[in-house]
């Protein structure tokens, strides 16, 4: 039941802000005793599945620009390989600190909007 609400919270943030669900998902997953690396990898899987739903809703609303997206996707895929290899190798503690920094940056951006 707790997992249901945790999932709902991630989904709620994703639905509300378009992005941001992942930032919430990682600490939620870590709080259920998942180690940081697994929390990050599992959050990617969760956001991936949730993003399919969001993408469909954008598609129905005709809000997708495929041409612009394709300018970034090939490099993104190369980046994905680099990131996934790094995640396996990076120490958990360093991972949490980097992520903490990313969260503060995200917070700063949201507050400045």
């Amino acid at each position: 039941m707790k997992k249901f609400f945790m999932g709902a919270l991630c989904g709620l943030l994703n639905g509300l802000f378009g992005s941001g669900g992942g930032v919430a998902a990682v600490p939620l997953l870590e709080s259920s005793n998942l180690e940081p690396k697994k929390s990050h990898a599992t959050s990617v899987a969760l956001i991936f599945l949730l993003s399919i739903a969001t993408t469909l809703s954008y598609l129905l609303g005709d809000k997708l620009d495929f041409g612009l997206s394709w300018q970034y996707i090939p490099y993104g895929i190369i980046g994905a390989v680099i990131g996934a290899v790094l995640l396996k190798k990076i120490p958990n503690s360093l991972l949490r600190r980097i992520f903490g920094g990313v969260m503060l940056f995200a917070a700063f951006r949201i507050m400045m909007k």
């Binding site: 997992k3 991630c10 509300l16 990898a41 995640l87």
Partner: peptide
């Protein structure tokens, strides 16, 4: 690399889908 915890993922998913709809 065996970094994905599928069991946790599957338990999060139903709430997640509901949350997305509610959020939107």
């Amino acid at each position: 690399n065996r970094l994905i915890n599928w069991k946790t993922l599957l338990r999060l998913l139903p709430g997640g889908i509901l949350g997305i709809l509610l959020g939107a």
